[in-house]
């Protein structure tokens, strides 16, 4: 028995054949034991499925269930078409675009802040601040170090400590 004959038997069982075809199948089954056996099996299977199928009952009537769906559809169709300028839409747009943009901007500002130091304010005190790394190798020689930010110059002024104790050397004495 081929697949078409099997399908024909199934269709006969489901009453999907025309009267002429149904008559032909009935005659064929009378002559063919294998066909009768398959038909019996299919009948049993269908009966078992029908008897054991769980019946699902809606907690509400069919009419009420569909009325709810209909009401929802009607409500959705009645909602005004969004113009893109409603407060909710604006808030959503802000949330979607501005929050990430703000985060990126904050990171960028922080990076720029770390990368650039504020320009030093020129003051008299800064002009005479100690600067430079000086290692004294001769105890007779002292040094005064300072930096002039305006001239971008570091000055290491050396002096003889003996002269310093006799005459007195001060930072003020070097500068005009």
């Amino acid at each position: 028995m081929n697949l078409n004959q099997q399908l024909k038997l199934q269709a006969f069982l489901d009453n999907e054949l025309s009267s002429r075809e149904a008559k032909e199948v009935a005659q064929w089954m009378e002559q063919d034991a294998e066909a009768r056996q398959l038909f019996t099996e299919l009948s049993h299977t269908r009966a078992a499925l029908h008897q054991n199928e769980l019946e699902v009952k809606l907690p509400e009537s069919r009419e009420f269930f569909w009325s709810k769906i209909e009401r929802d559809i009607r409500l959705q169709s009645q909602q005004p078409v969004s113009t893109g300028f409603s407060p909710d839409a604006i808030l959503a747009w802000l949330y979607r675009h501005l929050v990430p943009a703000s985060a990126v901007a904050l990171v960028a500002i922080f990076a720029i802040f770390l990368a650039t130091k504020p320009a030093p304010v020129k003051t008299v005190a800064m002009e005479t601040m100690s600067y430079g790394e000086v290692e004294t190798l001769n105890e007779e020689m002292g040094s005064i170090s300072f930096r002039s930010e305006s001239e971008r110059m570091t000055v290491i002024y050396l002096y003889n400590r003996a002269d310093d104790s006799e005459a007195g050397v001060s930072n003020d004495g070097l500068i005009q």
């Binding site: 600067y131 430079g132 790394e133 000086v134 290692e135 004294t136 190798l137 001769n138 020689m141 040094s143 001239e151 971008r152 110059m153 570091t154 000055v155 290491i156 002024y157 050396l158 002096y159 003889n160 002269d163 050397v169 070097l174």
Partner: peptide, 27 residues
């Protein structure tokens, strides 16, 4: 490193660029 009249006087470490001048001076 600076030597004055043969004496090793000072060792100075400083940043020097085309614009940043290092000046070592004395009376």
């Amino acid at each position: 490193d600076i030597w004055g009249e043969g004496k090793h006087v000072k060792k100075i470490k400083e940043k020097v660029t085309k614009e940043d001048l290092l000046t070592i001076a004395g009376d």
